[in-house]
Write a protein that binds this DNA or RNA. Structure first.
Length: 256
DNA sequence: ATGGTGGCCCGGCCA
């Protein structure tokens, strides 16, 4: 079973590349972020024709998350649940192939003194609370998405340049550490421990070609999933060529 | 160099 996460930075702009990528990589489950679509504009029929069921939680101009699955898609849920009042479409859930899956687009904090940074930390705290009340680390669970957090300095091209910046601050990394203490593992790192492996590169200044990126797209998985890991990679090819997203897809393979 | 590129949709916001 192949599970992928990809911040596509507008599914409308990226649909031809996403279709070709599905055909090439043959993922079973795909978590998409930043679709930037209303639910009414989500191309569910296009994905159905390729063999994928889907669920989308969108708001239109910004954000928007989806899950595609060709191994079943049950019990979809938007956001943090029925009592959720979060105004932004950043989280969607479904059960696919026996695994509870979330596609998450964690807010970008912008800077440490910004309201968006406080919103990011509050959003992560809500996710942690939901884990503790509604989930069990003994069960198969993957929370995949754009975390907008580089877990360690190995995940940043130049840590010195990010001192005092968002994506690397202690409170953000502490939030990720809390998820890990609860029972989620950064699955990619189980099989790919080396430095210099990034999933996002700024469009500006030729960052991709200069290898100036960050690894901020993660598949956080519970033990029953980690025990099945056979392969993990970042598909850098998807960041090349015409009209790429600024993020590359990250994928893991699980033994049956 | 406080820029730059690319998405939204058409002036400015967001990443």
């Amino acid at each position: 079973m192949r599970i992928a996460t990809w911040n596509v930075n507008s599914l409308k702009a990226r649909l031809p590349r996403v279709e070709a990528w599905l055909s090439d990589l043959q993922p079973d489950v795909v978590c998409l972020q930043e679709t930037k679509l209303a639910d009414s504009a989500f191309p569910a029929l296009t994905f159905a024709a390729l063999g994928y069921e889907s669920v989308h939680h969108g708001e239109g101009r910004w954000n928007g998350v989806a899950i595609l699955s060709r191994v079943g898609l049950d019990d979809p849920m938007n956001g943090f649940g029925p009592d959720d009042d979060d105004p932004e479409a950043r989280l969607v859930w479904a059960t696919c192939g026996g695994i509870r899956i979330a596609s998450a687009y964690v807010p970008n904090g912008r800077s440490l003194d910004d309201d968006h940074y406080r919103y990011k930390l509050a959003w992560l705290a809500k996710l942690q609370a939901l884990l503790e009340t509604d989930h069990d680390p003994v069960g198969p669970l993957v929370i995949a998405g754009d975390y907008n957090i580089a877990p360690t300095d190995l995940d940043v091209w130049n840590p010195a340049r990010f001192e005092g910046a968002t994506h690397v601050s202690a409170p953000e990394r502490d939030a990720l550490a809390a998820m890990q203490a609860w029972g989620l593992t950064d699955s990619f790192r189980v099989l790919q421990p080396e430095a210099g492996l990034y999933s996002w590169w700024d469009y500006r200044g030729g960052s991709f070609h200069k290898k100036e990126g960050m690894r901020i797209d993660l598949l956080m998985a519970t033990r029953p999933v980690v025990d099945r890991l056979t392969f993990a990679t970042i598909d850098r090819n998807a960041r090349k060529g015409q009209q790429p997203s600024d993020h590359a897809p990250v994928l893991i393979d699980l033994a049956d």
